[in-house]
Nucleic acid binder design. Structure first.
Lengths: 242, 242
DNA sequence: TACTTATCTTGACAATGCAAAGATTGACTT
DNA sequence: AAGTCAATCTTTGCATTGTCAAGATAAGTA
């Protein structure tokens, strides 16, 4: 009965609690037409966005296992089949949410890069922002990189994920001072890109899974994950120009 | 409708097919006691192991989404609740299977290390075996490193996963020619271990997710993932002694 | 032989994803 | 402005799943 079990049980409790609460509220009869206007109007107006926000809330509260179509519908206060009309599928909902995650993710990294002053900072800013986003939004990061229910044929998701990749590739290219040429790479360039991405991605996954806890615990008192990441990067990256 | 959808549909088809097949077989009446001996005896004898083997088969055939308690029971030809008695839970079954995976995984890496001749080979053997195992058993690797339903409080899983970690740590220690001292690490040592693990783990995850396909496609014609991995490692690791 | 325990089956329940059909609303047409 | 239509949301239903509670059966033991 590890943390996983606990999390699942928590999700179940949350589900149950919400259910009884909703039941107690006694959904207003569908006959009334324009009673108090605070009553749920038949047309929500912006249900799609409301569902996505509800989904993110459910995800960060109850974890990936708690993110179900019906839970999202409950959270948004609509019938259980309403999401289907907007996303077609659980895969659809999850994919759209992941696209939002990639956009947030990219924005965070871009902002961190922009606010970097020294060349060294500029080199560390992106990986640090990468890990920081994952720590701040573990549910979203897990959704983006751990879920199998993602449909990359959806343009929104494809584009957002692609932007994430090209941002990384450009950063590596800029760092090596040999901008990448469109559709072909040398083995050295490809290795540099794959190395940077693999390292940061792997570090983040292991950190979120708690698998680096052993290492951190053995390090000098009070060493943070960020410091460990910095040490990893400084030992790997090429010397900053100048 | 990406590959995910297809995989899920495939799992569903497999489930359906198996169900009708089983139904057609018309489970022998439970009254017969020792009819032909080929008839399913009430006591399986080694059901636990049979269930684990069935689970691995289901996992590699239908993916993580297809790995359900009932599917495993069907695959093993027993009633749907039989696995519960042996594993208590889906988490239990999945955790035991993951423990088996870690043991296979460790054995593969140890074998690769042993058969390495030159110092360079010895340095590359472990990462290569790591990626090779994941490619040969994607279902198992996903189960071990991607599933949330793992109960690390189970001794079997805890030990197997721990062995995986200490094997890596020792390899890094040996490579740096400063064996790690039990319960404390310098920042440099910790960074070296975390760097190696993060890189190989991240590379494997990205490779299995198809996220390195873009890079591989842009590299010189016919570059394999193994070659890319080697280029990554050679650019990072310290020069072999001598 | 009689009793006890481990093993396996049957049946039931709540929850889920999905599909189909009905209800309601807003917008467009004439 | 009245009528029509398509989009939106709800209701109902079905197959599936995990988990629990009883039963049935085999194996071991006294």
């Amino acid at each position: 009965m590890a943390k996983t079990e606990t999390r699942i049980e928590a999700a179940r409790r949350a589900r149950g609690a919400r259910k009884t609460a909703t039941a107690a509220k006694a959904r207003p009869g569908r006959v009334r037409r324009s009673a108090a206007r605070t009553e749920t109007p038949y047309h929500h107006g912006a249900l799609r966005e409301a569902l996505l926000q509800a989904a993110e809330r459910v995800l960060e509260r109850d974890g990936l296992a708690g993110l179900t179509l019906r839970a999202v519908a409950r959270e948004a206060g609509v019938s259980h089949a309403a999401p289907t009309h907007h996303f077609g599928d659980l895969t659809g909902l999850v994919s759209e949410l992941a696209a939002i995650g990639f956009r947030q993710f990219n924005a965070a990294m871009a902002a961190a890069c922009d606010s970097a002053a020294s060349p060294l900072e500029r080199m560390l800013a992106r990986p640090k922002a990468y890990v920081a986003y994952a720590q701040a939004h573990p549910g979203m990061y897990g959704l983006m990189f751990r879920t199998e229910r993602l449909d990359y044929s959806r343009p929104s998701l494809h584009e957002a994920a692609e932007a994430s990749f090209s941002g990384l590739a450009n950063a590596i290219g800029a760092m090596r001072q040999e901008p990448i040429a469109g559709d072909s790479l040398t083995l050295g360039q490809g290795a540099a890109i794959a190395r940077a991405w693999s390292m940061v991605h792997g570090f983040t996954m292991l950190l979120l899974d708690g698998r680096l806890a052993d290492i951190l615990h053995r390090l000098p008192e009070g060493t943070t994950p960020e410091q460990l990441l910095e040490a990893i990067l400084k030992g790997t990256m090429p010397k900053p120009p100048g």
